[in-house]
Design a protein around this nucleic acid. Sequence first.
DNA 1: TTGATAATGTACGAACCAGTCCGTGTCAAA
DNA 2: TTTGACACGGACTGGTTCGTACATTATCAA
Lengths: 223, 223
Amino acid sequence: MKNNVARPVDREGRKNDPEKTKEDILRVATEEFSAYGLSGGRVDAIAEKTRTSKRMIYYYFGSKEGLYLAVLEKAYRKIRSLEADLELADMPPVEALRTLIASTFDHDENNPDFVRLVSIENIHYASHMKQSSEIGELNLSIVKTIAAVLERGRGEGIFRRDVDAVDLHMLISAFCFFRVSNRYTFGTIFHRDLSAPELYNRHKHMICDAVLAYVRCSETSGG
Amino acid sequence: MKNNVARPVDREGRKNDPEKTKEDILRVATEEFSAYGLSGGRVDAIAEKTRTSKRMIYYYFGSKEGLYLAVLEKAYRKIRSLEADLELADMPPVEALRTLIASTFDHDENNPDFVRLVSIENIHYASHMKQSSEIGELNLSIVKTIAAVLERGRGEGIFRRDVDAVDLHMLISAFCFFRVSNRYTFGTIFHRDLSAPELYNRHKHMICDAVLAYVRCSETSGG
DNA sequence: TTGATAATGTACGAACCAGTCCGTGTCAAA
DNA sequence: TTTGACACGGACTGGTTCGTACATTATCAA
């Protein structure tokens, strides 16, 4: 194997493992960008926390922005894989909606890093996301799922007819997302720890109740 | 007001006007930090856009973070002054809630800079806000207002009894805030311009209906 | 008028930080 | 065993950016 037999015992030489290296960089970069933002994150800091060097970051990702984009794409790829199999088609419309809302709620609750990355991307006017073909093609299946559930509910005469699927998704997402994204300012102003376990169930019930009450409601607003 | 009557008619020399200078810096800094964040914002860029110099920024605000904090405090001071006089006490509970929701909705819609600053502050874990005595004491009157309206509604037997005022404020804020803060990513994914005028009324009606349906609803969730 | 102090401008320093240069190590196919 | 493509590390650089030293002018009270 080795041609230099006289090599001192030291086996701890370099092991080439490009996949591991890339994965390692991405993992550390996700933490860094999620914690400090794109402008606030430091390439040197990322390099130090990996088992490789800064040179490798540029070798694999080209630039700081390239790395950030890779982090963002990986984060979105992960949620896309999660949102697939809820199998709501067999459930009664009300139960299907409850399941869907609970799933969204739990996703944001359990992935604060993703929530932060999305906030950061919004601060940057979603400019990186737009430039990514991968994320750009996220034509989210969740909307079709919601639309189908709404349609079934209307068919059964229990849902109002003027609810748009994207709007409803926004109503659900907004609450679930805000609860995590604005945890710190909201918690500070109202002296309430939004990550407290007792609020978890209460808030989950709340958004379920609100959404269901809304889709069944026949009231029109004067607002 | 001025006691030096013999003020020479406009020599184009320096005019000392500390209030104007501070105000000018704050105005420009708000734009810069709101656009690029705390880490992304550049002190030099701010200085160039003011009619004064970088020296003055450090003279009045001490540091970049000091300036950022001043920007944040001014933004919160502004909303505090706005949220005072809605005079909901005389309205029927349902109308009072509608008015309150519409007001929150319009505030976020009309103050995207404020929304961005709050997002940015959350990325920083609200650390500056916590260190500000001024903002820290924002014991928002809006919660008392909501609590009073809820109480009246319960008295009239039209509102459910288990709704917490802070939770309800969060439900309202979340939708109004998200609509502005996540405009870019959400809009990109769903190919929908969230600042489009026709969505303004639809979304306003939606959050009104949802909240009102919720507070009247007697359903308990199985989620 | 004058002296104290507040306000302002210019130019510069020092640290930081994204990105690169140059050289070395790894491995598999020829 | 040679070779070439891929993988890798450490030191360096040049521009950027926060912050400041020093000089100057304005204001106002005594």
